[in-house]
Design a protein around this nucleic acid. Structure first.
Lengths: 143, 143
DNA sequence: GTCACTATGTTATGTTGTAACGCTCACGGT
DNA sequence: ACCGTGAGCGTTACAACATAACATAGTGAC
């Protein structure tokens, strides 16, 4: 996880103590966290203002170290090296809130194809899909 | 647009005056509207509380008459007959905020394939893609 | 030393979405 | 006619998510 430092150096952004703490909190959480979850978790001794958390989140997203789940207003650390040609798919479990991050050339291709028909040019190739993860399916239908 | 009435009758939900007004407001708008946009537009004479608008939006979404764009917190009327096997793709223009709705069997298939690898079962097959629409591309790069 | 820049703090506010509860009206049963 | 029930919406208050505006502290260049 300290490979984040390298990425920051490469991009010219600093990995300050606060930014590190946010990153660590997200990495330590088993599920994506909301901004105010972070406010709570970081503010044990000394309260951190929401705006500060949001600023840090912006920087980390910009650096590609974390992702934002728009359908949930939550944030999670990034695990992948993102190859520019692939699409990123977030499999969001409606039941437990967990998110799995996978990449797919195939989806990127069909997305591009579909968009091209209308002249639309996709920017960030990230999509979020609601559904039920394997774990929750098993829990929901005990045999 | 009064084919909405048929859908409602078929589903057993009523198309009340308020619901009709919300639907008409969305249809009349050139772009997707936020819930509070609707509060303003409907409340010319008599103020409608946000909660009422949200309730109506929920019903209309449930009936399949409108969609919600999660990345923008906006709502737009639905144009398509939604075939259950296809995926719905919302092409969201980051520049003008306009949304184009297209369907794709191909994307549905690659989505299912990708998800299957992790045991994830997709629910609603709707994805939102950020990008730039044809109109805004033309406006941005005048030759 | 001073200037510029980056990071963060402080305070307040804007935007989006819900909870809890009550009123009214239409409809069905008796 | 009376009553119960449920759908639809009003009213009030609040929760959750996000940002604006301005101040302060450190760091490095000159």
């Amino acid at each position: 996880m300290r490979h984040a430092e390298e990425i920051c150096r490469a991009k010219g952004t600093q990995l300050t103590p606060l930014r590190r703490r946010v990153l660590e909190a997200l990495a330590a959480a088993e599920r994506p966290l909301g901004a105010y979850d972070l406010v709570e978790r970081l503010g044990r001794e000394r309260r951190i203002a929401p705006i500060s958390v949001y600023r840090v989140l912006d920087v980390l997203i910009e650096a590609g170290l974390i992702h934002r789940i728009a359908t949930r207003n939550t944030y999670l650390p990034c695990n992948h090296a993102h190859e520019s040609h692939a699409a990123t798919v977030f499999l969001v479990c409606s039941s437990c809130g967990g998110v799995d991050e996978v990449t797919s050339d195939e989806i990127a291709a069909s997305l591009t194809g579909t968009a091209a028909a209308t002249g639309f040019r996709p920017g960030a190739r990230a999509v979020e899909v609601e559904g039920e993860c394997a774990g929750c399916q098993a829990a929901a239908s005990p045999r």
